[in-house]
Design a protein around this nucleic acid. Structure first.
Lengths: 161, 161
DNA sequence: ACTGAAAGCCGAGCCTG
DNA sequence: CAGGCTCGGCTTTCAGT
């Protein structure tokens, strides 16, 4: 699946504001509305664009506290086991297996510090968990909606302007 | 700013699909289209909804590799210094100051492992950085678009079903 | 504060260059 | 593969309850 510069510009425009009209996007990228629509349709077909979502302010919804938790598991634990277990916690908004000492890293959103504590407590109680190591987020410095930047522009890679 | 259950249902619907018609949302939550629109307008005014964005598949755009990097900084380093510095890297999609040994945690998206290495190299070269500790993501287990769950439903908190 | 109707405008499909 | 056109339908607004 090849993406040219036009596709990337369209994606960037839609990440910025998914409710723009096709005509507006066309103006930005230099295409007509129908041409933009056909490209957007294709981008959705191919899976480059997976959907459209409202951006919400977590703190406005009451999620004022977040934490990162490293998970140390028993040797025989499968990644799918971890996935299955943590999916059940709505507070776990992200999770990944990682290299290094820990087996997995969880990203947790909660209403307050006490809430974080309760969640970690219950996660640590799971059978395959040996121990956890958690860090409370003091202040969020960056939170980029993914897709804002495009990797193919190699000059920007690892080269702060 | 108070959010009642209707507002939360509307937000959940818009997070799921930001391009639904107001009539559809109204059907789901039991309101007319115009009532839904006015509530959405208010939610945008108050900042609960910050915008609408296309969901893109990072790997479809070429971001196939991600990593988490712990930053250990000099004692006099201000969070704003870190923020300013890492914002310049498009690869840093998230950053936060945290409790614990490290001063900050960065979330990096790159095209491949080599790219990750280059970025970390340049981050480590910054004046205030004493050392870094990085973990490559092996597989992503969970990636929840934020706002899908609502904290006020206290029964679900820390209580996997 | 929600409902319902009227007017403007966008989106989807087809057809042409 | 991009552009232009048309109609159905959604968004928006306003009056009404």
């Amino acid at each position: 699946m090849e993406l040219d510069q036009l596709d990337r510009d369209i994606i960037a425009a839609l990440v910025d504001d998914a409710r723009q009209t096709y005509a507006d996007i066309g103006h930005q990228v230099g295409l007509s509305a129908s041409a933009v629509k056909r490209r957007v349709d294709r981008l959705r077909e191919t899976g480059a664009i997976t959907g459209f979502s409202a951006r919400v302010s977590p703190q406005a919804l009451g999620w004022t506290t977040e934490a990162y938790v490293e998970l140390f598991c028993q040797g025989k634990t499968k990644p799918s086991d971890i996935a299955l277990a943590v999916t059940r916690f709505p507070e776990v908004v992200a999770a990944a297996t990682i290299t290094g000492e820990a087996d997995a890293l969880l990203h947790i959103r909660a209403t307050d510090v006490r809430h974080v504590e309760r969640v970690i407590e219950r996660i640590a109680a799971m059978a395959f968990v040996v121990r956890t190591k958690s860090s409370i987020v003091l202040s969020r410095l960056v939170d980029t909606p993914p897709g804002a930047a495009v990797p193919e522009a190699r000059n920007t890679s690892a080269t702060p302007s």
